[in-house]
Design a protein around this nucleic acid. Structure first.
Lengths: 224, 224
DNA sequence: ATAAAACTTGACCAAATTTTGACTTTCTCC
DNA sequence: GGAGAAAGTCAAAATTTGGTCAAGTTTTAT
């Protein structure tokens, strides 16, 4: 599966150029020409983000902080600014690297590769998560109990994916909401209770096991 | 616990300077003045490596490849070389970043922090606190006495978490209230007495130990 | 366009936790 | 040794939380 890269920059000429170049290297590229657009496109779950610092509206540094609340992936700043303080600010905002314009395309590719490789090393992407007879295929978004395929809706699978990928950790409803819906829950997060109920029922009926534990007052935990 | 950084460079003047600076920032620093020495010092399991490319004997690029076979941690190249091709080589050799000399110390620190932070995000440490046979799993919110799991309510666990994470320190009730409830206690601080009682009873029944000491007139202290 | 599926909401109940207040014990200082 | 303050105990009351259900609302598929 090709890596997805999100380019955020308000200069169409540059984004066009980069987009073409990266696509030539086999990446799947999405372009956002504004911060708002960038946030909207986070749902493609990019594997890496190229982020321009100088943009109208919310600037790249602030955007970076916001993105960090949603997804974990390498964020590389692209910018013309060069002072050391700027670099420091960028990295402190949660960026992973800093590339000053003008930059060589070859260097850019190399840096991207380095970061993706590093992400690969750390995230050991278990395309498949298993828990005693239960097989969760993340990339295919399918769940099996032994030979039998269980059917889950999108939200249901998203929740299963999030929890089972982080087994034995407790997440409160707010955190789950953030991870699955992509933004904060407003009022009562009754929705989650309901989805958890559905998931539990399906898993229980098929396997007879309880996979999602309730930690009273705290949230839920996937038992591995 | 302080992060460990390994500096590999054959210029004693530079390593000395860096070492001091990093130590000032709270890092534990080891220095290797040659590739051989570097390999020997991998056993300190550094959290991050600063690696000079130009060194006699095995050069930094080759060393990097070798290191990669042993441990996984961010590797940052330090070097005077500046051509794009060099950068590409460095990153392809398995490096995670590339900093050209001369570089600002502030930028260096920022980059180091960025990489460590990223590592932290990915490697999610087990977050476990132990006290003589007692195991407190912070992220999973579980407490074990040997094989047996003890059950605590949210507030109880919060208090245990706070105290056990700061062992041997005395905290008055107000301070505990602030840490656990998130705001100041208003009137009666009887709540804490009650919770402490419950916690003590459960821990005592399971382990026979007294983990929370009363410091009369002062507060409570977790005995480690 | 219509039917089906998925998602969300509000209400209710039962269970578990948290807080409270009255009371007892322990400690410190005179 | 005794007064007073601080800490410990206990049971009951008050509150919060999670599970469940039924009824909307939205989205998706046909």
């Amino acid at each position: 599966m090709a890596y997805r890269i999100l380019i955020v920059d308000d200069e169409p000429i540059l984004t066009e150029l980069l987009s073409t170049h990266l696509q030539d290297h086999g990446y799947t590229v999405s372009v956002a020409n504004s911060s708002d657009e960038a946030l909207a496109k986070l749902n493609i779950k990019p594997n890496l983000i190229l982020l321009d610092i100088n943009m109208p509206g919310m600037d790249g540094l602030d955007l970076c902080k916001v993105i960090r609340n949603h997804i974990v992936c390498p964020i590389l700043f692209l910018t013309a600014r060069i002072t050391e303080q700027d670099k420091v600010n960028g990295l402190r905002a949660g960026g992973d690297d800093y590339i000053t314009k003008p930059f060589g395309l070859q260097e850019l590719i190399a840096r991207i590769e380095a970061h993706l490789r590093r992400d690969e090393r750390n995230n050991r992407p278990p395309e498949v998560v298993t828990s005693q007879g239960l097989i969760i295929n993340l990339s295919g978004r399918k769940v099996f109990w032994n030979e039998q395929e269980l059917s889950f809706s999108k939200r249901e699978f998203d929740i299963i994916e999030f929890l089972s990928s982080n087994p034995n950790q407790v997440f409160d409803k707010e955190r789950i909401y953030e991870a699955v819906w992509g933004y904060d829950a407003e009022g009562d997060s009754n929705v989650i209770k309901e989805h958890i109920r559905k998931i539990r029922a399906k898993l229980m009926q098929a396997s007879g096991n309880e996979y999602i534990e309730t930690v009273w007052g705290m949230g839920y935990r996937w038992r591995k």
